[in-house]
Design a binder for these strands. Structure first.
Lengths: 215, 215
DNA sequence: TAGATTGTTAATCGATTAACAATC
DNA sequence: TAGATTGTTAATCGATTAACAATC
């Protein structure tokens, strides 16, 4: 079987996509790994290696076609397919994510939110209804939700994840500050905001260790 | 000069801290790298290597004292010192962060928010006032803000960051979907939510690559 | 003391960078 | 064709894992 592509490569794809989209909007037709290197800060060699994991998208002597490479990366990530999403927890963070550009661009469709607080239930947020958590499995199944975003307090996150998986959800986007355990075949992506803030604070106290983009 | 500690190590510290806090709350007094390995999923060897970058906190034949190791890590990250924080952008995300536990625990002090919309200005959010962006430098200086969280649209992020640095801010916690360029000595930490979501989507379409599953 | 477990050096693994032949 | 730039192999670098002597 083909060797798995390392997650370091995967996590660079969104960045390539972002810059290619910008270049496309600026009307650029072609780009070399050398020029992309200057823009992204990755080495030209790394860029060529990364892209070659997925196929030979370039042409010797020419470089890469911006628009076609952009479409390839959209396809590789899976952004050319629709994704049905729900959010558990209609608090500040849940509402912020519901209204974020992420779910409006890129073929993501926010289908439902869930909360336990009676005063939230029935409201419309970013075009989606807030349902009671007690109805979660039913709604997830009916609307064929693929991805559940968890923004609840950490003590209920595991239970909600388990129930969502039971109801057919295949990806969990977890903002609750806890490590979830999920069955084989279910994908988990954590966003631990405090880990990011703590890293910032560490480097503020030890900035000689910090290697950032400088100018 | 002592060699810089790699950012891979730094980014594991918050996780150690989280588990040590949990163990402490459970009344555990000691922990071996072996037991911590089972809990965290890191190897025992890696845990000992990581901790030894900062000093010999353990004791042969015994392991580590939970509470004292926890305090050491808090000190290493810098969470035992107060940090004065402001948020640029009092939209959904700014409000969500203002209300998040992060700023209430851990000696972070949210001192101000900034927005351009007249209807927001003067409001109190999570105990802090919303100021006009035009007053930003004055407020940042007066309140001696160390960290600016940017949750504005991306097109104003660089300008706000520049002005904040000018007003004495030393760390930027950036949620705007753009790469900022900052002077030497200023620390930047990006939270690119869509990169996280895209990674989730990629692995949902390629789950055999996920976490190194093989066959 | 004997058993346990660290601190630390050495070996391994994986990812990044360099080099260059292939080729547009 | 000649110049440019990829695709790909080889070299390097860094991070993780293994091993074990030190020592509590």
């Amino acid at each position: 079987m083909k060797k798995a592509i390392s997650s370091a490569v995967i996590r660079r794809l969104p960045k390539y996509l972002r810059y290619l989209t910008a270049l496309h909007e600026q009307g650029e037709e072609r780009i070399s790994s050398q020029k992309l290197s200057v823009i992204t800060g990755f080495t030209a060699s790394q860029i060529r290696q990364d892209l070659n994991h997925f196929g030979g998208f370039g042409q010797q002597g020419y470089g890469y076609n911006v628009q076609s490479l952009r479409e390839q990366i959209i396809h590789i990530i899976g952004l050319d397919r629709p994704h049905r999403v729900a959010i558990a927890g209609a608090g500040h963070l849940g509402v912020a994510l519901a209204n974020a550009d992420i779910f409006n661009e890129n073929r993501f469709h926010l289908e439902a939110l869930f909360d336990i607080r009676p005063e939230c239930i029935g409201k419309q947020i970013a075009g989606a209804e807030v349902y009671s958590v007690s109805e979660m499995e039913t709604v997830l199944r009916e609307k064929q939700i693929e991805i559940l975003t968890i923004t609840t307090p950490r003590d209920v996150a595991q239970e909600l994840a388990d129930r969502a998986v039971e109801a057919g959800v295949r990806g969990i986007w977890n903002y609750a500050q806890t490590d979830l355990h999920l069955p084989h075949g279910i994908v988990l992506e954590n966003v631990y905001l405090n880990e990011s803030l703590f890293t910032l604070v560490y480097y503020m106290g030890n900035w000689k260790d910090y290697k950032g983009f400088e100018e």
